[in-house]
Every structure is written in structure tokens, then in C-alpha cells.
Amino acid sequence: MIELREVHKGFGAKKVLQGVNLTIPRGESMVVIGGSGTGKSVLLKCVLGLMTPDAGTILLDGEDVARAERDAFLARFGMLFQGGALFDSLPVWQNVAFRLLRGSLARPRDEAREIAIEKLRRVGLKPDVADLFPAELSGGMQKRVGLARAIAAEPEIIFFDEPTTGLDPIMAGVINELIREIVVEMGATAMTITHDMSSVRAISDKVAMLHEGVIQWTGPVADLDASGDPYVAQFINGSADGPIEAVR
């Protein structure tokens, strides 16, 4: 469904992506792991068109995303941002229903609110949260609202950017479970970037490790512990010794 071919992206002299090749089949949950600053977020933003690759091709269902009609392309995606990226000026329900209140997916206001409350309920939030503003919510609640917004328009593809960053282990576990349930329930294709190994094991069907601008290893999550790749082994064990330099 999503295919990256020789994708390169740099910022000045710094080459972040140096020929990324990755395929995510339909309905599969792919988790991209890698250390901080290895370009995981850049990779995700290149797929979404938030950044333009310097070279290479990104295909969605065989079509080059650079030539795709933007609105139709983006309508297929939902995205959970690292910090939630909720709109401060809007109450929670309008954040969740943002896409349903405007543009090609616009619906009557009452119907959009109903859907927003239903999605909030799906991520474990009560309807009375709907009229609060994002600043009135805890970090975990903001993540849940972000998740509700990502699934509000029932997208085919959902991206998760560091979904458990900044959360306590229990809340991280709750979010991981929610993501897994929702992805399976919706039959969506998912791409998650994280360096949280509990997320990797909870969310993924397949894992890809990004290091030094290329996919170092990719395979089913079941093979992760026995990958035989020294980079993967060092990363999942959190060891300071190994081929990945501790000081970057």
C-alpha cells in the first residue's frame, strides 16, 4: 500500500535520510524504531507531504504521492502527533470533529458533535470532556483526544508519532492497547514511529529499524529478539555498547 523507494532528505550538510526503502502492505501495522535524531519523524513527514524528499519516490497504492491530488490524498490519512497538536482555541469536540466540520467531509454540526462524542467514548473519555479546552486536559487525555481526532473520519491509514512519549507507564500501556484495538477494529494500515519498546511489542505486526539514514533491518515483530542484527540487538536491549554510538 505504502512504498518508499530510495528516499533521501537532508538539511544543509546534514543528510538525514540516505536512501530509505520500505514497504507497508495494506492492513499491516509497521513500527519504525530508531534512536533520537535518526530521522523517524522526517520519514513520516515526507510520506504525508509535510516535507518534500530531495530524491526518491513515495508511492501510495502505486501512485506517486508527489503527483496525487492533495485533499483526496490527505483524506485517507489520520495522524496522532507526538504532543497531541490539539488546537488550543477550539473545544475538545471541535478538535475531534475538525475534519467533519469543514471541507469535503463536512457534515451538519450536530452530527459532527455526535460523532466526536462517540469517538471520545471509543478512546475512553466521557462526553463531558467534549466541551473542555485542550489546556484543561492532562497529557494522557490530550493523547486520547488526539487519537480520537485521528480516527474521527475513519481513515484507511493512521500514523502515530511517538504515541507514548511523556506518559507514565500505565497510561502508555492504555494508549498502546487503544491503538492496537482501533487499528485492528478499523482494518487500517498503520505506521508508528517510536523508541519505546513496549509500544513496539504492543502495536506492531512488523518492525523496521532506521539508522544512519537507511532501514537497517526489517521483519516481523516475532523475529525482533532473534534478528541477529547487532544494531537491533543493541537498540532493543538499550545497551551503550555496540555498533550504534552512544554519543551522537
Binding site: 509535510l50 483524506a75 489520520g78 502527533f81 507526538q82 475534519r99 481526532r149
Partner: peptide, 15 residues
């Protein structure tokens, strides 16, 4: 909005 990725979020919401 930019530093908290709200502008990126707008784009992904087709706005």
C-alpha cells in the same frame, strides 16, 4: 501553533 505541530496537524486535516 507551529512549534507545537498544530500547523502540521492542520495540513493533515486537509486544511
Amino acid at each position: 501553533m507551529k512549534v507545537t505541530e498544530q500547523i502540521d496537524a492542520l495540513v493533515t486535516l486537509s486544511t
